[in-house]
Design a protein around this nucleic acid. Structure first.
Lengths: 361, 361
DNA sequence: CTGTTAGCGCTTTCAT
DNA sequence: ATGAAAGCGCTAACAG
């Protein structure tokens, strides 16, 4: 477990700096004043003689100088920092949204401070607090779904903020996410076309999560139009093992009942509609354990989100325009920060149906 | 798409602050000097009369004051910021390591600046640069595997840094990761016990990634002890579709050849050993497309990492102690920052074999 | 116990 | 075209 101490190679370039050079050091080294260095740093070359500019360039190089963003931010009053609060990074959805955010930050010159609440409400609050403390210019929030907690630091009159995927009660901010209604219609239409006689929407507790609420509502609305197809909504609380097991057992019963009425290799008459990827995974895991790899012969499955394993498991999904959502969120935030936006806006992007084996593809 | 403008509820608490209160504002409001406020902020209550302390408390409350961390950091010379550079967040490994990092930061009072290189070398460099610019006190790096690029900002004499999973040539920093040798032995021993007659280690280009190199070497070493079992290493470049397809085709040939020699439902005689989760996914996707859901009857599969879909797909894995790795990395970094550590250390944690159907479980 | 005074590293008038 | 000086919000001696 010991290591051969690496040679201090390339150390020649990095002069074993005991302390980073400051703007004053550079000024001294270049034989000029701090002001000129600052001007150089800010690209005001039109007010710098070529000669001085060259000297500065050399001094910076020699000292390996890097301007201190903190100090800059302090003076300027803006630090190009924005906060990105994610409810759950283990959900691929979040990672993809994040990629969009990063791309946009890149383009607009922001540095995103990524905070991961890991499904902990207290974490969410703490990070929000922390972000204001670091004086971020704005925040993009994929909230857990509480309300008071975050209202404090971000609430009306607070820092600019845009919500992703879900709104927060009482918080009047921009919002960007999926067109849930259309997406649900995409899914139900597909299932109906496939001839399922019963469809169960399975969703995590949705009281406090606007997007889930909307999906449930949209589902119920859509199914009202086809009374001949039995429709129901089941809550699957992934955070609560006991409750989850019970919900799963209830689903089993429905599935079993349906199967009894049919011959063995007929197409399944019941389909599950998973409200997001984690729900779909839990369901698939359960069905797989209970019915074996052939579970798709017993029950149909379609899910929101399109995690990489969906292809492997052959599960029909509704893919969200995740990167676009992240990108758009930053654009909105940028406009807010620049004071270009006045009223709260909402941007909903369309989902895409990807048909696979799990719905008789 | 329009929204009902939310009521400015709870706005009473947040007095529509046009500008955040500063320490001076609080001092004035409390009728005292900035020093006392600062002392209050830093918990030096032993030098504050209860009376003054109460006044300060009230003033802070009234103004909804939040100390500016940037200013604090500027003055103190330390800002409690550490950088966390991740090569690829779409790899669940990274997310889990991150969780460990976050937990440790929480415990040690650091704020991690998370940077996601998204497999882009240039991004990696840019972020590293950015991190030094924000004067982070240290960085935890899960590098892409180039060398010069990052040596500049972090190299010897640079800021404290600890590497995760992989070392970087010429960079003399702490390192924490998996005990690759032991993990490989765990895997090969399992496969040998299962009676496979041919084992192919499939890995992404490993020239520049120390952990991959070590796995390959360990694999080859382990297999040298059992010459009766054919062993080989195949490179699968996920970034290069053409090359990947070719590699996969080569694997198909081996698998096909083996299958011809046996009756249909005998146990497969060849097993694939995936160097990490992305490789395993690509392989599984391919095998599934080529041989159908029954592919596990044709070929065995074991993989490093234990993504959530491994259970669903029934794939045997070697799970890494990801969170522990992240936690430990922060601890190492903390010690470095505090100047408690002198020489470069290495910490390798053991993996855990999880047997599933893909190796005849 | 409390306040005054100097900066941290940088930007920005305002002169020159 | 260049520089001196005055802070940004905060902490840390140093005096009382």
């Amino acid at each position: 477990m010991s290591r051969t101490p690496a040679q201090p190679s390339a150390a020649s370039a990095t002069p074993m700096s005991p302390r980073r050079a400051t703007i004053s050091d550079v000024a001294r080294e270049a034989g000029t004043g701090k002001t000129s260095i600052s001007r150089y740093l800010n690209g005001e070359f039109n007010v710098l003689s070529a000669e001085l500019r060259a000297r500065i360039e050399a001094a910076i190089e020699r000292l390996d100088y890097r301007p201190n963003q903190m100090a800059r931010g302090l003076k300027r009053g803006r630090n190009r920092l924005i906060g990105m609060l994610l409810a759950d990074l283990s959900n691929p959805y979040s990672v993809e949204v994040l990629q969009g955010v990063e791309a946009a930050c890149q383009a607009l010159g922001y540095m995103p401070l990524i905070c991961h609440a890991a499904n902990e409400v207290e974490m969410e609050g703490r990070y929000l607090q922390l972000l204001t403390t670091y004086r971020v210019e704005g925040v993009i929030v994929n909230a857990l779904g509480v309300r008071e907690a975050m209202l404090k630091p971000v609430g009306s009159g607070g820092i600019p903020s845009v919500l992703v995927d879900r709104t927060v009660e009482g918080l009047d901010a921009d919002m960007v996410g999926l067109d849930n209604e259309a997406a649900v219609r995409l899914g139900t239409a597909h299932l109906l076309e496939r001839g399922y006689e019963e469809i169960v929407f399975v969703v995590q507790p949705y009281e406090h999560v606007s997007s889930r609420r909307r999906r449930v509502t949209a589902f119920e609305d859509a199914m009202r139009a086809t009374p001949q197809v039995r429709a129901d909504t089941v809550v699957l609380d992934l955070q609560n093992d006991e409750a989850a097991s019970a919900a799963l057992a209830a689903l089993d019963e429905r599935i079993g009942k349906g199967a009894d009425e049919r011959q063995h290799d007929a197409r399944p008459r019941i389909a599950l509609f998973a409200g997001n990827a984690p729900v779909a995974l839990r369901i698939a895991l359960h069905l797989n354990a209970r019915y074996g790899p052939q579970w798709q012969r017993r029950v149909g499955l379609i899910a929101f989100d399109d995690p990489d394993w969906a292809e492997l498991a052959g599960i029909t999904t509704i893919r969200q325009p995740t990167r676009a959502i992240g990108y758009r969120a930053v654009e909105f935030l940028h406009q807010r920060i620049e004071g270009l936006a006045d009223v709260a806006r909402e941007c909903v992007l369309p989902g895409e149906l990807i048909v696979r084996a799990s719905t008789g593809g």
